[in-house]
Simulated scan of single mutants.
Amino acid sequence: MNTAELVQHFAEQTHPDELEQFDRSTLRDLLTQHETPFLVLDLQEVEYQYSALQKALPGVELFYAIKSLAHPAVIRRLKKLGGSFDLATSGEVDLVKGLGIEGHQCIHTHPIKKDREIRHALDFGCTRFVVDNPDEVLKFIPYKDEVELMIRVSFRSQDAIVDLSRKFGSALEELPGLVNLAMENGLTVSGLSFHVGSQSLSPFAQVNAVQASISAMKEMSHVHWKWLDIGGSFPVSYQGPVMPIEDFCAPIMEALAELPASVKVFAEPGRFISAPSMIEVIRVVGKAKRGARTWYYLDDGVYGALSGQMYDHAKYPIAPLKPVDPTGDFYPSVLAGPTCDSVDVVDEDIELPELAVGDILIAKQMGAYTIASASEFNYYPKPKIVVVEDLIDHTDDE
């Protein structure tokens, strides 16, 4: 079954308007306490997503990619659940260290690093690093007695929204040379890693990458392989259906069954855990009729928490907070952000009921790569984050 067929297969399983899952009374209470725009971070949703992925990938150690949403409350909750952490910068090292995370609970996955970044991570106690080219391997010679390396291999995927093998990863045919270079210089190679891309629409690229990695490990039997890092790519639903996580992971687990029992499997979920955990509460602050469409001006836009539309190729589901009659009238509309820049348009082709200045909109799936890339352009402050427990009821999902 190809990707298009998979999407069609699961389209009928899409939940009705997910806004109905949100506790509207709770949101209205929050509106009396906080000025819009603000984000609502649901820690129970973080736990729900983490547990769902853990169940779908039994035996796989999950290293949360904190770059997707580096909020201390998320990290604390995942620490409580026994989670591990994927780091890429010295700033992220300092963040998790300040929250009581220890170096052995982390991997450092940025393939390109400054020497002082390596030393900083080692001082923290993180000894597992990713490399993907000869120059990077050689940087570790001064630390050869302290580190274990994972070599990142490039596997391109047409099914991923964000291609993460374009910028990083060695070609498969280059792998033996990198392994030999490391070993000739006294370095320990203990694993392979890959990332087929963020928000993958099917598991096939990941399955192929697992199979190719296992074959490469068998061919290089002189290496004591300890780890295989399968990256992220686990999808969430934005505007359309995606495969349920248990169905997405099933063929991956089948492929991993061919791996020797002595090799541990890592994964680096970011979006899957963080995206559904946050919504944004936005207010209509102005409206104007321009041609055939009504423009609604919001108090946040693509320079703020909706920045993922520019940087992450995401389009967030947005709907009015007040219940909408699906049989009522809808009109061609535009949602625009508050800044003076004309690029600050959230949606130019959306059908909405008639809205009034002051009405509230809810943007969903706002946890991943949103506040992380938000700016304060025009001196609009970034939306604050309000932390709650159990905003969404999953009773019907279980």
Rank of each mutant, 00 (worst) to 15 (best):
T3F: 06
A4N: 11
A4P: 00
E5N: 09
L6P: 01
A11F: 11
Q13D: 12
R24H: 11
T26W: 00
L27V: 09
D29I: 00
L30F: 07
L30G: 08
L31E: 03
E35M: 07
V46F: 03
Y50S: 07
S51F: 00
A52N: 12
K55P: 00
L57P: 05
L57E: 04
P58I: 02
L62Y: 02
Y64V: 03
K67C: 07
L69S: 04
H71W: 08
A73H: 09
R77M: 07
L81E: 15
G82F: 09
S84V: 00
S84K: 15
A88K: 09
S90A: 14
V93D: 02
V93R: 03
G98K: 10
G100L: 09
E102G: 13
H108R: 13
H110P: 00
K113C: 10
K114R: 15
D115N: 12
R119F: 01
A121M: 08
L122I: 13
G125L: 11
C126E: 10
V131Y: 08
P134M: 03
E136R: 10
V137I: 15
F140G: 12
E146P: 00
V147H: 08
E148I: 04
E148L: 07
M150Y: 06
R152F: 08
F155Y: 15
R156H: 14
V162C: 00
S170F: 04
L172M: 03
E174K: 08
L181D: 06
N185R: 14
L192F: 10
S193H: 05
S200N: 14
L201W: 08
P203K: 11
A205K: 02
N208L: 10
A209I: 12
V210W: 01
Q211D: 05
S215L: 13
M220H: 10
V223T: 02
W225P: 12
W225Q: 12
G231Y: 06
F234L: 07
Q239K: 07
G240P: 00
G240T: 14
P241R: 09
V242I: 10
P251M: 04
L256R: 04
E258K: 14
L259E: 11
S262T: 14
V263L: 01
V265T: 12
F266M: 13
P269Y: 10
G270Q: 02
F272D: 02
S274P: 05
S274W: 04
A275K: 01
S277V: 05
V284C: 08
V284I: 15
V285C: 10
K287M: 13
K289M: 10
R290Y: 06
W295I: 15
W295H: 13
Y296A: 05
L298I: 09
D300W: 00
G304N: 05
G304V: 04
D312A: 15
H313I: 03
K315A: 12
L321Q: 03
F330C: 06
S333M: 03
V345P: 04
V345G: 05
D347N: 13
E348F: 11
D349T: 06
E351W: 06
P353R: 06
V357T: 14
I362Y: 03
K364L: 15
K364F: 11
Q365H: 05
G367A: 04
G367T: 01
T370L: 02
I371H: 14
I371A: 14
F377T: 13
Y379G: 00
Y380P: 01
K382L: 09
P383R: 09
H394G: 01
T395D: 08
